[in-house]
Design a protein around this nucleic acid. Structure first.
Lengths: 270, 270
DNA sequence: GCAAAATGTCCCACTATTTGGAAACATACG
DNA sequence: CGTATGTTTCCAAATAGTGGGACATTTTGC
């Protein structure tokens, strides 16, 4: 074997500096994500993971045996039922979802619009729950999805609990050149900061088509017993349903709902 | 009786006879299920998996780093956001057709009749798949075709998962004057409602030439991980092959097949 | 407040576990 | 009917994982 061995070639892409000590497990998880991304053929998976066919196949068999993957012989691999099961369980386990449910359901009914519940996770907004609106219009958002913080209503509500120093960093993320063009351009920093300060003062935030054209929303932060912002809720709808005066009316209502959830989490109003 | 086979002495418990060759991966997955079961403390997990603290902790760190677990220091571990993400992805990624195929093929072979798979789409039944019967008679139905919900076997199975309020609307569609005359007249509402309630009670539905003269069928709903009706299957044949007593026999069989598909979709029997 | 009990974190020599090349066989596709 | 891709098994080599232990940190019970 006189070849030059390209020992580790996986430090470039996603940046995984952690050389932890559970290679097989990590590879298996990467495999799951690979299938989640739509790569369902052995060859593609092997190529993407950088593992030989033999090794790849061994993991595939194990994952199928455990129900994490679904196998259609000579066709490909798909995410399996066990993942659906665990996903549902994960939602239940999070006390936040269970606690917030009745409140956001009431809010959805009162407003007729789509209501979201989300938390911050790794610098993004993570959608934990969604109650569809009754106006028949469809929203692209989905439970389990991720979105930028600084452009979404939920995200800005989360930012109300952060120090202004982080505002700038999060805002910069969206202004950077690698931000995809399919999203409306964010306001420039001075204006953005001014808006944020207004939101802090009133205790709720707005999203004026900054994440998706045609969609406006009103949001407010949820706090826990330590008075830290742990989540946010938002009411979203199409622009025609969200004129300025309605947003002004909705604001306090959304905030009241968020506060009610907060109280259920042990928060005490100052 | 001679020949008491004590094949393997440890496949009694969880039933994992396969000692495959991916120990670390399997352990990690077992760990996830352990947390899913509500065991969130290191000691408990280690005890349950039979791994030393050191090893357990190493896996926990990796799983947390990858987002499969959520960690609250000195409090415990919960299923993480990645699992929510993958679970949702699994739900949408699953092509019903592929999952249902083997089951409906088996059903077609067992009955000798035409088997259909369909979903609701825009207020109609949309045929996703069809296995032709072996009796030589041709059925007009085709994959990709649309039919009214309230007059087809598939449709009525789909209706088993709807609130009765929608039954009336769907029934009304067929009774309206603009319903073409090439279709048999539907039963009047009180009778229709009574039938539907019977179908709900037994878990499967019938179509007595209501969609096409001379064709009868037996159908049952397919549910997903959230216990929502996402599809339906039906066994259809010409009247001479479908006397009342055979339909009564077929009902439970069709329902069992539908349930088997449901389980593959993550559904758990109540 | 303090001490006991758990948990989080790191180290390292040993070896069981995983690796991956290869080759045979099955199935799909054109 | 041939080629490409997927499925399965084998096995020697060595890498990757193991688990015991020590120590820092935090919670909990008293």
């Amino acid at each position: 074997m006189g070849g030059i061995i390209q020992a580790t070639e996986q430090e470039a892409e996603t940046g995984k500096p952690q050389g932890t000590g559970t290679q097989t497990l990590l590879r298996g998880l990467a495999l799951l994500e690979c299938v989640a991304a739509g790569v369902g053929d052995v060859k593609g998976i092997a190529a993407r993971l950088g593992t030989p066919r033999s090794t790849t196949h061994r993991m595939l068999v194990s994952l199928v045996a455990e129900g994490y993957l679904h196998h259609i012989p000579y066709k490909g691999y798909l995410l399996g039922p066990k993942l659906i099961q665990l996903g549902m369980k994960a939602l239940e386990q999070r006390p936040l979802v269970a606690v917030a449910r009745p409140h956001i359901e009431a809010l959805a009914q009162a407003t007729g619009d789509t209501v979201h519940l989300g938390v911050e996770d790794k610098g993004e907004v993570f959608y934990l729950d969604k109650i569809p609106g009754t106006r028949g219009l469809e929203m692209r958002s989905r439970t389990g999805q991720r979105m930028p913080i600084a452009s979404t209503g939920l995200g800005k509500a989360l930012m109300l609990g952060m120090v202004p120093a982080r505002w700038m960093a999060l805002h910069a993320l969206l202004s950077s050149p690698d931000a995809p063009a399919d999203r409306p351009r964010p306001a420039d920093w001075p204006q953005f900061e001014k808006q944020m300060n207004d939101y802090v003062a009133q205790g709720w935030a707005k999203d004026l088509e900054e994440n998706e054209l045609g969609i406006r929303c009103v949001s407010a932060p949820v706090r826990d017993g330590r008075n830290l912002v742990v989540a946010a809720i938002s009411v979203a709808s199409a622009v025609p349903y969200m004129p300025d005066d309605r947003m002004a009316t909705l604001g306090p209502l959304v905030r009241a709902t968020a506060d009610a959830i907060s109280k259920d989490l042990g928060w005490i109003a100052p």
